[in-house]
């Protein structure tokens, strides 16, 4: 069946790297700012003794901080009207609205302050589906996070819904 919402050139991009690989050091201040901002004051993010007692090498970080640790600073000139950044990771679709559908995370190894984390995001999936309100596109961006030892520490799948 020919796809009406997904241009053929966009379909060809499945598997393509959309961003990265970027490597960042997990910084104490950034991680703790994140923990305070989400209101998660778990001692394993703030008290090294508590973190070690819980089996971590040193202070660990809130699980979803990984996404934000990897955010690349960009110039303000790149902002669109809605405040999001213009970037070449956008996939061309014949839709008017993109919504966040949800996320899926797998955690394999602990992440601690001082770790060097590399994140690479791929277009993992792109397909058109029929819903109650008509056709929509399901777009999956998968990010693999590895540490300085080459271990995969986590994978995230961000699901976008466009119609």
């Amino acid at each position: 069946m020919p796809s009406s919402l997904i241009p053929p050139d966009s379909l060809k991009r499945i598997g393509e790297v959309l961003s990265g690989p970027f490597t960042v050091r997990i910084e104490l201040r950034e991680a703790q700012r994140y923990a305070y901002a989400v209101g998660d004051l778990n001692p394993i993010y703030f008290d090294e003794t508590a973190a070690v007692a819980a089996g971590y090498a040193t202070l660990t970080v809130p699980p979803l901080f990984l996404t934000h640790a990897l955010v690349q600073p960009k110039p303000i000139e790149n902002l669109r009207t809605d405040g999001l950044y213009n970037d070449n990771a956008s996939i061309e679709l014949r839709v008017s609205r993109m919504m966040f559908g949800g996320e899926e995370w797998d955690f394999h190894e602990p992440v601690c302050v001082g770790d060097e984390i590399t994140g690479t995001t791929r277009l993992a999936d792109l397909d058109e589906k029929e819903g109650q309100k008509g056709s929509f596109v399901r777009l999956v961006r998968e990010t693999t996070f590895t540490n300085q030892r080459g271990d995969i520490v986590a994978k995230s799948r961000q699901i976008g819904i466009a119609r």
Binding site: N42, P43, I44, A50, A51, A53, A54, G55, P63, M99, F100, G101, G102, E103, E104, W105, D106, F107, P110, I159
Partner: peptide, 13 residues
């Protein structure tokens, strides 16, 4: 608790 390990989580908006 702090000694437990989150293995996976998923949610839908």
């Amino acid at each position: 608790g702090p000694r437990a390990r989150l293995l996976s989580i998923e949610w839908q908006n």
